[in-house]
Design a protein around this nucleic acid. Structure first.
Length: 422
RNA sequence: GGAGACGUCGCAUAGUCUGGUCUAGUGCGCCACCCUGCUAAGGUGGUAACGGGGCAACCCGUUCGCGGGUUCAAAUCCCGCCGUCUCCGCCA
């Protein structure tokens, strides 16, 4: 939820943000209007209520005829109070409804839609397989030969977009996620294993139930949602709390299964494990002061790049365009690794600065000298199952074996090469 | 799944039976000042959040798990929900 004060004081900023995202700027004026109505009806209710309370005290003291007369007055007043209270309630609900539909105000993101991103930098050089004398194979080919990935049985057991990681594939994922956790630990994050089923309130608070609600699995019988990322649980972790951030940001590294319906992606990335319904992820999450948020965002990007360096992948960093931002994000950087089999970049990490948007919904504040204020939240990817795709493809060798990047070897018992099993 | 107990301003607790003096008391913690020659003790005062109004001092309202209801008036009475704990049952 955006700050109502920003809306009042700088409506143009919010209108411009809506415009850049390709959203409706008229929402801003509707919200301003609802806010004015809310305030005036609230003022009416409150003055009536004050009168009622004052009279109530007199009633308690009065006796006999005097009391009867007072009761007659207050009885009438009670009806009016109730009416105005209902009106104030309604005006507030209207405002809330409008405010919930306004996504976060962008902060530095380039305007436009998905293809309007800016490339901030490119790191590493994709291998020249032609020069090496062989055509790169895709991750599923490689994975099947290594006995690492089994999508056929995944489909048999659970349907399309499910898979088994088997043998060395399972070990590779554990190695990757353990390496990510260790990196987070070294950076001062507290490792967390989080719930993957959350209440509607938690899901709504993180901004995932808006435009992209289709993406989310819901358990009707229990009124719970399956999370698409541990960000959801970690954003709810300090809900309704007032934090002490005087010692710097509170940083958590969540390890969880993630679930996505992939409702709008029919026919896209259908082969292999690029786009699946269930995967694992280590996610960074940070609660920090608003003033520190942009710097924290850069730091998160830095840790992501450190992780990419560990697995020796060529990648580029993009500044996501406003129209491609999530509801909660004010700015988002993605790291995309090169995918030799498709000769394109594939998103491996994504870090968002949600400024105070999520925290306002979840009611997370910090204590400052001047009182309390809403904190900023940020999140970023440190490792996912999808990374296996890029690792297999980029480190494949002519004979179908795959070189293990040095940063992962300690997590695989020193294993240097994954060998085909058939 | 069944039964019971509980949910109060950072923590602990009083208040609920018997609705109004609760503007929610007290202790601990914390902050400021005072006293005191010393890593102590004591004294005084202060110490929730949110919203609205005001240049401001300040004023008003809301919040006693959440949501309804009864009433002139609800922490207190009634209903529903959520959560915690204990016991029982069932399952892993």
């Amino acid at each position: 939820m955006i700050d109502i004060r920003l809306l009042r004081d700088n409506p143009d900023t919010v209108r411009a943000s809506q415009q850049a995202r390709g959203e409706d700027p008229a929402l801003v004026d509707a919200a301003l209007d609802a806010d004015a109505r809310r305030r005036s009806s609230l003022a009416e209710f409150e003055s009536l209520r004050a009168e009622q309370k004052a009279l109530g005290k007199e009633v308690a003291r009065a006796v006999g005829d005097e009391k009867a007369a007072l009761l007659a007055r207050t009885k009438k007043l009670a009806g009016q109070v109730k009416e105005h209270q209902a009106a104030a309630h309604e005006a507030e609900a209207e405002l809330d409804e409008l405010l919930y539909r306004i996504p976060n105000v962008i902060e530095g993101a380039p305007p436009g839609s998905e293809e309007d991103f800016l490339t901030l930098k490119s790191v590493g050089t994709p291998r020249d397989f032609a020069a090496e004398g062989f055509a790169p194979r895709d991750h599923l080919d490689l994975g099947e030969e290594l006995g690492a990935i089994d999508t056929a049985r995944g489909a048999k057991v659970s349907g399309s977009r499910f898979y088994f990681l088997t043998g060395v594939g399972a070990r590779l994922e554990l190695a990757l996620l353990n390496a990510a956790t260790d990196l987070a630990l070294a950076a001062g994050f507290t490792p967390m294993i989080t719930p993957t089923l959350v209440t509607p309130e938690t899901m709504r608070g993180t901004g995932f139930l808006g435009a992209h609600a289709d993406e989310i699995y819901r358990l009707e019988r229990d009124d719970l949602y399956l999370v698409g990322t541990s960000e959801v649980a970690l954003a709810g972790y300090h809900g309704d709390e007032i934090l002490d951030l005087s010692g710097g940001p509170k940083r958590y590294a969540g390890w969880s299964a993630c679930y996505r319906r992939e409702a709008g992606s029919h026919g896209k990335d259908v082969r292999g494990i690029i786009r699946v319904h269930q995967f694992h992820k280590v996610e960074m999450f940070s609660y920090c002061s608003v003033d520190d948020a942009a710097a924290e965002h850069e730091r998160m990007l830095g840790w992501e790049e450190a992780m990419l360096a560990k697995v020796e992948l060529p990648y580029r960093v993009i500044d996501t365009a406003a129209g491609d931002l999530g509801t909660s994000a004010a700015r988002k950087f993605d790291c995309e690794a090169w995918l030799p089999s498709q000769e394109r970049f594939l998103e491996l990490t994504s870090t968002s600065n949600c400024t105070t948007f999520q925290a306002r919904r979840m009611n997370v504040r910090e204590r400052t000298e001047g009182g309390t204020r809403t904190v900023a939240t940020l999140n970023g990817t440190l490792g996912t199952t999808r990374w296996i795709v890029a690792i297999l493809e980029n480190h494949q060798q002519a004979d179908g074996s795959v070189r293990v990047p040095e940063g992962l070897r300690p997590y695989l018992g020193g294993l240097e090469v994954l060998e085909p099993v058939r």
